[in-house]
């Protein structure tokens, strides 16, 4: 309802900073985290004008195109990038915004959809439309980007080969991590920017300490860990008080940034790393790998291999949310 946004009397009021929210390849959980601000939406609404938010408002791409370059105070973009449409929107918002924030694990590091980077595009299409157990498709029909029928043409967007992080497509100023981010981080970040604070470009707007620092089980974490086995969470009881690493479960806490309020730990499950690494770590997976490997309590190759059987999917464990943004970026499994 853009016309409703511009009543004459409104122009008299002092202009508030404009904020845009947008989603790319994501699940909607980041949007839910904004809605979960609940009563704190007051603070946000008082402070800014939301000028674009497809999930909640009817502003169009054309409305954004009509804005002067750089006129949006901040754009919060969630989701990874897989289609040309997402690339275009990210570039448009970059051009129109003073600050671009990658919001949530997918925009920040690729997120779970980026696990698809281990697979060829063709393999995905073939399985989904031809091989899945319930599909009956003897004609080998595939969705087509241009479909002609009786003189009618229906079009679909192109499905790209690789999932990318937001900063692999446009210049990003700041990051808000998490799958999903907490409403508190969102609120704190916005208020800090509105106060005129400008952390160095590239800053992740969350505490720059490992999750272990805020973990309620911190006191039970041994100074020296010794792994004689790695236990998979389904296969062993989980003590609700004791450090998960001390129990032999892979917990990403040491290699993961805090600020999440240790939510998974409160659910009595290990951290899976959705906040990404701290600023001192380039590659989250490499960091936890070196940390775990240096604490293996074994000398012989066969004993080491035996212990590593407890981590059957290293990429999915260490790069659950960060494959696209990692040094690996894309690691194909053989067809």
């Amino acid at each position: 309802m853009p016309e409703k946004q511009k009543p004459a009397e409104k122009r008299k009021a002092p202009e508030k900073p404009k904020v845009a929210l947008y989603w790319c390849s994501s699940c909607g959980g980041c949007e839910e985290s904004v809605v979960d601000l609940a009563e704190n939406i007051l603070t946000v609404i008082d402070a800014v004008d939301i000028v674009f938010w497809p999930v909640a408002m009817d502003f169009k791409k054309a409305d954004v195109e009509a804005m002067p370059d750089g006129s949006i105070f901040a754009s919060l973009i969630n989701g990874a990038i897989r289609t040309s449409e997402q690339e275009e929107m990210a570039r448009l918002l970059r051009k129109k915004s003073a600050v671009v924030i990658a919001y949530g694990a997918c925009a920040h590091l690729g997120g779970i959809p980026a696990l698809a980077n281990q697979f060829e595009r063709e393999r995905i299409l073939r399985y989904i439309y031809e091989e899945a157990p319930t599909v009956i498709n003897t004609g080998g029909i595939r969705p087509m980007t241009t479909y002609k029928d009786n003189g009618h043409t229906a079009t679909l967007p192109v499905f790209r080969h690789v999932v990318r992080t937001l900063d692999q497509v446009v210049d990003v100023d700041y990051y808000i991590p998490g799958c999903a981010p907490t409403p508190k981080l969102l609120l704190d970040a916005l208020l800090a920017l509105l106060r005129g604070e400008r952390p160095p470009k590239g800053t992740v707007l969350a505490p720059d300490t490992a999750l272990c620092e805020e973990c309620p089980r911190k006191d039970s974490k041994p100074t020296d860990l010794h792994f004689t086995e790695f236990r998979r969470p389904h296969a062993a009881p989980i003590d609700p008080e004791l450090c998960l690493l001390a129990q032999g479960f892979v917990c990403m806490g040491p290699a993961t940034r805090g600020g999440c309020e240790a939510r998974c730990i409160h659910g009595n499950m290990p951290c899976t790393g959705c906040f990404g690494p701290t600023s001192r770590v380039r590659d989250q997976g490499a960091k936890i790998l070196s940390s775990l490997a240096s604490n293996l309590d074994a000398q012989e190759d066969k004993d080491i291999l035996k212990i590593l059987e407890g981590i059957p999917d290293p990429v999915g464990t260490f790069y659950r949310y960060g494959l696209a943004g990692s040094l690996l970026r894309r690691a194909l499994k053989p067809l």
């Binding site: 959809p113 696990l115 698809a116 995905i124 399985y127 998979r232 999917d313 999915g316």
Partner: peptide, 14 residues
């Protein structure tokens, strides 16, 4: 399209 069925392959069931 995202293809969850395919990129689930190789992951621990839990």
């Amino acid at each position: 399209l995202r293809g969850f069925e395919v990129f689930s392959i190789g992951r621990p069931a839990e």
